[in-house]
């Protein structure tokens, strides 16, 4: 479904992505792991068209590198940014409605369905997004992206800074995503959630993919974990 080949990106003179290649299959959840500054967020931003990059990004057999972010989104890719980026002055319901790309088409998710899955958001439907807790904001961002009915979702650090209960909810949400056959590229620093949910994983270091395999492969490879993940 997603095929990234030899992706390069620069921030000024810094060569932040140095030939990243990865793939995500249909209905597959793939984790992209690594320490801070390894280039994971830049990789998803480059796929999304938010950072300019060179190389190749093919989605459903079509080259999408060079498209603007809204064009990438309309091809069927959803993006959940690291900083959540909810619209603070709009209500929870309005935030969700803005996730819908085309109100004339019915997608796999509706506002009412999201509310039934996450009653906490339903209780806060008319509350401004800006006053929600960190965990609630994260759920809102995830659900808002799903309202756009993506076939692939790029999720950047969904559990960053969240309380254990909220991390659990994010896990449940990702399981729901998986059940619906939606592919996901999950950027994470924490191993626990990635090893539980993902089918395959890539490990990044210094702007390159330094390891790829299954969660079992990573569990078995202590040397790689120590060198590229542990602080």
């Amino acid at each position: 479904m997603l095929e990234v080949k030899d992706l390069h990106a620069f921030y000024g003179k810094s060569h932040v992505l140095q030939g990243v290649s990865l793939s995500v299959g249909r209905g597959e959840i793939v984790a992209l792991l690594g320490r801070n500054g390894a280039g994971r967020s830049t990789t998803v931003k480059a796929i999304m068209g938010l950072v300019s990059a060179q190389g190749s990004v093919r989605f459903k057999n079509e080259e999408i590198l060079g498209l603007k972010a809204h064009e990438v989104a309309r091809k069927g890719i959803g993006y959940v940014p690291e900083d959540r980026a909810i619209f603070p002055d709009l209500t929870v319901r309005q935030n969700l409605v803005l996730g819908i790309k085309d109100p004339r088409k019915r997608g796999r998710w509706s506002v009412e369905e999201v509310f039934s899955l996450f009653p906490l958001l339903a209780e806060r439907a008319e509350t401004a997004g800006g006053v929600l807790s960190g965990g609630e904001q994260q759920m809102l961002t995830l659900c808002r992206t799903m309202m756009g009915d993506p076939d692939l979702v790029l999720i950047d650090e969904p559990t960053e800074g969240l309380a254990p209960k909220a991390v659990e909810q994010v896990g449940e949400f990702l399981t729901a995503v998986k059940k619906r056959g939606i592919s996901a590229l999950l950027v994470e620093q924490k191993l626990s959630i990635s090893l539980q949910i993902s089918e395959r994983l890539y490990l990044m270091g210094h702007g390159k993919i330094v390891f790829q395999g299954t969660p079992g492969d990573l569990r078995a490879n202590e040397g790689v974990r120590k060198e590229w993940l542990e602080v």
Partner: peptide
């Protein structure tokens, strides 16, 4: 507040 995010949502 967030034009980049609005664009990433497909607008």
């Amino acid at each position: 507040s967030r034009p980049d995010m609005v664009q990433a949502l497909g607008h």
